[in-house]
Simulated assay, not measured.
Amino acid sequence: MPFTSFLRSLSPQNPLSSPSLRKLLHPPKKPCSLSLPLSASVFQCKRKLGRKFEFGLLCSLAMDSQSTSLLVLCGKSSAEIEFAKSLKANNTLKLPDNGEVSILLHPEIEKPEEEPFQMDLFMSSLSTNTFGRFLIWSPQLPSTHDVVSHNFCELPIGTVCVADVQLKGRGRSKNKWESPRGCLLFSFTLQMEDGRTVPLLQYVVSLAITEAIKSICDSKGLPHLDVKIKWPNDLYLNGLKVGGILCTSTYKSRKFNVSAGIGLNVDNEKPTTCLNAVLRELSSVAYQFRREDILAAFFNKFETFFSLFINQVGRELLSKKIMRAKWWKM
């Protein structure tokens, strides 16, 4: 069966009746106790602590701030680290609607072991040449997708933006939802030249996620989690939704600038289930899925798949692999 026909066979009879993306409710935020904007508060922290910033205090300030987003930049190689310094020095990164941004470099963090997202752990597990090597992390953002798409031309291809909490996550049909802690929330950039294949990219992303989870299970000696792809862009586990994927693109200079966003419920059982809840049911081992492990494994898989996808012969081989993947049907 041709790949496109296979995809059509998975679509609901009436796409308009398909359920919208399930919203993940974010716990009520504490009243803001700051009398200064985040940028001013960060400056005061630096005066008190010297060259480095105490991480717990920074996260607290960022989570309480309603108007400013804290972005921490991290690179895998010296070239990416120098690029991060340039972005900060030139105050290059912007948010839609002129939202205020405070930028820090990862080496400026006082206690990196207290990071909610362990950037060093992620980088040490990453083995790619392009994807994931430049990282933007934030404790809270309106949308990771907005960060990479709004700054696309200022960032190296393969840049990833990760947030612990997302307030206005983007979905299909302009749906928006809040995502609490415990979810892997990230968006990354890539470029494509063949517009005919851009709509199929979401299936490559879906396959890379499921294969990443499988590879972690294999390496840790864990039972496989039955994560399945649901047409057109959802991830299901034991019949319940645990993730979603969104790919958007713009056309410029004969190339499609693509922003791919993924949300995966790793450690939050509500409102449906999560990877670690199912893992606890299947195994008594102490290991729990970590966002850093999944993200690194995803990019390690995705880079291989994407190199096949942009090649005609490789795309045919990859299409067969996608067709053999586990698909969830209503």
Rank of each mutant, 00 (worst) to 15 (best):
P2G: 05
F6Y: 09
L7C: 08
R8F: 13
S18Y: 10
P28L: 10
K30A: 13
L36H: 08
P37R: 07
S39V: 11
R47Q: 15
K48H: 13
K52N: 13
K52E: 12
E54G: 09
E54F: 08
G56T: 12
G56N: 14
C59I: 09
L61C: 07
D64A: 15
S65E: 10
Q66M: 02
L71M: 13
V72D: 03
K76C: 01
K76F: 01
S77F: 05
E82T: 00
A84C: 14
A89Q: 05
N91H: 12
L93M: 05
G99A: 06
I103E: 06
I103F: 01
L104R: 05
P107C: 12
E110G: 13
K111E: 15
D120R: 11
F122W: 03
S127H: 12
F134I: 09
I136V: 13
S138P: 09
P142T: 11
S149G: 01
S149A: 11
H150K: 02
V160R: 00
V165E: 12
K168P: 02
R172N: 08
K176G: 00
P180H: 08
G182Y: 04
F188L: 02
F188R: 03
M192A: 09
R196T: 04
T197C: 03
V198Q: 03
V198S: 03
L200G: 00
L200H: 10
L201S: 02
Y203L: 05
Y203A: 08
Y203M: 06
V204S: 03
E211Q: 15
A212W: 04
K220P: 00
P223D: 04
H224D: 09
K228F: 11
W231M: 02
Y236G: 00
Y236A: 01
N238Y: 02
C247K: 00
K252T: 06
E269R: 01
K270A: 13
L282I: 00
A296E: 03
K326L: 15
K329C: 15
M330G: 14
